[in-house]
Amino acid sequence: MDHPSSPSPPRDRPAVMAALAAMFVGIGLARFAYTPLLPAVIAAGWFGPDEAAYLGAANLGGYLLGAIGGRRLAPRASRTAPILMLITALTFVACAVPLPFAWFVGWRFVSGLTGGALMVIAAPAALRVVPAARRGLAGGVIFAGVGLGIAISGLMVPQLLRFGVGTAWAAIGILGAAVTVATWRGWPDDVPPSREHVAAASGRPWPPAATILLVVYGVIAAGLVPHMVFLVDFIARGLGAGIAAGSTWWAVFGVSATVGPAIFGLLADRVGFGNALAFALTLQIAAIGVLLVSTGPLALAVTSIVVGAYVPGSAPLVLGRLRELFHDPVRQQIAWSRGTIVFSLGQAAGAWLLSIVFARTGDHLVLFGFGTAAFVTALALDRVGALLDARSRRRNAG
């Protein structure tokens, strides 16, 4: 999002780190630390497999509501973001004791609520003060916070579980609070747009290519659910490899997620965001589909690395593509907010659907078949959107 002045590096680096921390706490920990905790919660007898799966879906449901309301917080991001991060940390501490199922559902919903709002407001707030020449890389660094959360939780949780499931929950919450405090002062000053500017931007026509892009983003969200929610359980219980093996592959998944956004961002700088998105979708079809034909170490490596890189890597690609379609900062914020809402809808719908399917079948491969089909659909829709955009550009040029 363009800004009239180019701030000095000492100003934009703290902002990028603050937004990275928001992704780390609000998404990386709040959502993905639950994945290696899932089989441990089941093994400890806190909840059965069906109930534990629904806790993951509750987080995604909260994410949807947070994404819907998040845009209203955008003008006050520097004040609201760290508060949301602290609330997220609190949700882990609240789950450190085996209380009734409804208690956990409520707090997992709250953690999704804060995460959805942070996804909407954090990156745009930081990128506003980053010079245009560095925004691609800065965006990749910000969304790498998701991968850091995945990697650190994959490494920490098995060690923490030696002291009990409750200790693991509490320790993750303390980590989230510490990161929040450490980056609190990095948030840039808020620059809210005028009401007239917002009203004018909201009333402009919406390009068909942008509509299709948002649909694609929603389908991507549903297609990622099997890996985000069920990968560790598939390895630990489905393949009988145990929690340690599942957490190890989850750590590989997280390390890949840490570098994935920057890699996809650099690719987009070279070939364009549209082409990079199509290439990434094709990779996902192969990386998820491989589990339908093999579950050996090589297949687990491919699926963990490639899908891991794309879980946070999809966001900077879609955000960058939206910037190509919309040049006004207010319209960019509106489009990104809508994209986050659609993504959360796709995730929530996919999570609830697959939770029901898994409760009835107990078959993880059915879930990965769904993921493969979702990415085939996303790629087809993306190519339709590209054709419409090319046709529109030719018409405008003529």
Rank of each mutant, 00 (worst) to 15 (best):
P14M: 08
A19D: 07
M23L: 15
G26N: 07
G26T: 03
G28F: 04
A43W: 04
A43G: 10
G45K: 07
G56D: 12
A57L: 09
I68F: 11
R76G: 00
S78R: 13
T80W: 05
P82C: 09
I83M: 08
L86A: 08
T91Y: 08
P98C: 01
T114F: 08
P124W: 01
A125L: 01
V129A: 03
A133M: 13
A133T: 15
G136Y: 08
I150C: 06
A151S: 12
A151V: 04
L161P: 02
G164W: 09
T167C: 02
W169A: 01
A177F: 14
W184M: 14
S194W: 00
R195S: 09
R195Q: 09
A199H: 06
G203Q: 15
A209I: 02
A210N: 11
A222N: 06
G223F: 12
H227F: 09
V229K: 08
L231C: 06
V232T: 15
A236E: 05
A236V: 09
L239F: 05
A241Y: 07
A244M: 01
S247M: 03
A251M: 11
F253T: 07
A257T: 06
F264K: 03
F264V: 14
L266F: 09
A268S: 15
V271A: 04
F273R: 14
L281Q: 13
L283N: 04
Q284T: 07
I285R: 13
A287R: 03
G289L: 13
P297Y: 09
V302F: 10
V311E: 04
G313Q: 10
S314D: 14
A315R: 00
R323G: 10
F326Y: 15
D328S: 06
G339N: 12
A349S: 15
W352Q: 10
I356E: 05
D363V: 10
H364C: 09
L367Q: 12
T372P: 11
T372F: 14
L381A: 15
D382W: 14
G385V: 12
A386V: 12
